[in-house]
Simulated assay, not measured.
Amino acid sequence: MKDTTDTFAITRMDRADSSTFGWQVRLQRHGTRYAKYFADRGHGGSEQSLDAAKKWRDDLLEKFTEDDRARVCSRSSRNSSGVVGVSKVTIHGAQGVTYHFWQATWSPGPGQRKSIRFSVKRHGEKEAFNLAVQARRNGTGIKKS
């Protein structure tokens, strides 16, 4: 099984204070955690340790059946946009004015949450949605023009 994200379940570990430089693979299935660390020093450098981490991860994922694979960023029954992290937002303002936006939300790092809204009135329904999808995929806000 090949995941669409090249570094799925793989994290870079660069900690000079503890001389830790390498890649960590972490997966969980049905409450069982799988983890392994691949040190740059033990594998001949960063690229080689990343290759070893990917191979170990891919070999492990091959052992899981289709039903065992984690649902990472899969569509929830509550998601009506069809794109994870993209939703339609309606705001009821003063004097009964209603504003419609497509909003992208993402996490640039642990404990952080970012979002950006695109006005349906300004961009049109389709373009506001497309801008939100692109912002979500990029993981960065797009400045409104």
Rank of each mutant, 00 (worst) to 15 (best):
D3S: 11
T4E: 15
T5W: 12
T5K: 12
D6A: 15
F8A: 04
F8M: 08
F8N: 12
A9T: 04
A9Q: 06
I10Q: 00
T11S: 07
R12T: 07
D14A: 04
R15G: 05
R15H: 13
A16S: 13
S18T: 15
S19A: 13
S19T: 06
T20S: 07
T20V: 01
F21E: 08
F21G: 04
W23T: 02
R26L: 12
L27D: 12
L27V: 14
Q28K: 10
Q28L: 03
R29T: 11
H30D: 13
T32M: 10
R33P: 00
Y34G: 03
A35P: 00
A35W: 04
K36T: 00
Y37V: 01
A39D: 10
D40P: 02
D40H: 06
D40V: 03
R41D: 09
R41M: 07
H43Y: 14
G44P: 01
S46W: 01
E47D: 15
Q48Y: 03
Q48A: 12
Q48M: 04
Q48L: 09
S49P: 10
L50Q: 03
D51G: 13
A52D: 03
K54F: 05
K54P: 13
K55M: 00
W56N: 01
R57I: 00
R57P: 00
D58T: 06
D59I: 00
L60W: 09
L60N: 08
L61D: 06
K63N: 12
E66Y: 11
E66H: 09
D67P: 07
D67A: 14
D68N: 06
R69W: 10
R71K: 15
R71A: 15
V72S: 07
C73A: 14
S74A: 13
R75W: 07
S77K: 07
R78L: 02
S80E: 08
G82F: 07
V83C: 08
V83R: 04
V84C: 01
V84M: 04
V86C: 03
S87M: 11
S87I: 08
K88Y: 07
K88V: 05
K88Q: 12
V89Y: 04
V89C: 12
T90M: 13
I91E: 14
I91D: 13
G93D: 08
G96T: 06
T98Y: 06
Y99N: 10
Y99K: 14
F101D: 06
F101Q: 07
Q103K: 15
Q103D: 11
A104Q: 06
A104E: 03
T105R: 10
T105Q: 11
W106G: 00
W106Y: 05
P110M: 14
G111F: 02
Q112T: 11
Q112E: 13
R113Q: 08
K114W: 13
I116V: 11
F118G: 01
V120E: 02
K121M: 12
K121I: 10
R122L: 15
R122A: 13
G124F: 06
G124S: 10
G124Y: 11
E125W: 09
K126T: 09
K126D: 07
E127A: 14
E127N: 12
E127C: 09
F129R: 06
N130W: 01
N130V: 05
L131H: 04
L131G: 04
A132R: 04
V133I: 08
V133Y: 02
R136C: 12
N138L: 13
G139P: 01
T140G: 11
K143V: 14
K143G: 08
